[in-house]
Amino acid sequence: MIRLKHTRFYFGILFTLTVMLFLSLGGGLWGAEQSIGHWTGALFQNVCHQNPERSFLFAGVPMAVNSRCFGVFAGLLAGWILIPAITRLTSKTQWTLRLIILAVLVQIIDYSGNLFQVWQNTNLTRATLGLFLGMSASLAVFKLFKPEN
């Protein structure tokens, strides 16, 4: 039994994030040959560079977002799903802010390291770091859903 404050709001956002992740899979899901130019690609073009070389494939077609953005969206959903469990485990919030600052810093370090050719990141590392950022963003709001005792 999930015990949360603002239950309807929680499930509304859960549904929205699920749909967003689903749509980010791109044109492959709808039988298109590309995501860029497809309506799913158009949805995300304001928030992602959508370079096919830096995107995972779904059904043989590059997704509508790159691997880092896909990781962020997956992380937002995963973190949101974890909120009910976290509200049971702790009341402290400081760690969530530290976590999100760490996640942002790691993104900047990874991006800069790749930009200045110190190292070369991969789709998997970008997605993993994106997942970390997305999860930490969702978990940062867990206290808003914690029921009063």
């Binding site: 956002i13 919030t93 963003a137 940062a140 709001v141 808003l144």
Partner: peptide, 9 residues
């Protein structure tokens, strides 16, 4: 989502 973080902070 970031606005919710703003509410939390």
């Amino acid at each position: 989502i970031t606005a919710l973080i703003g509410v939390a902070i």
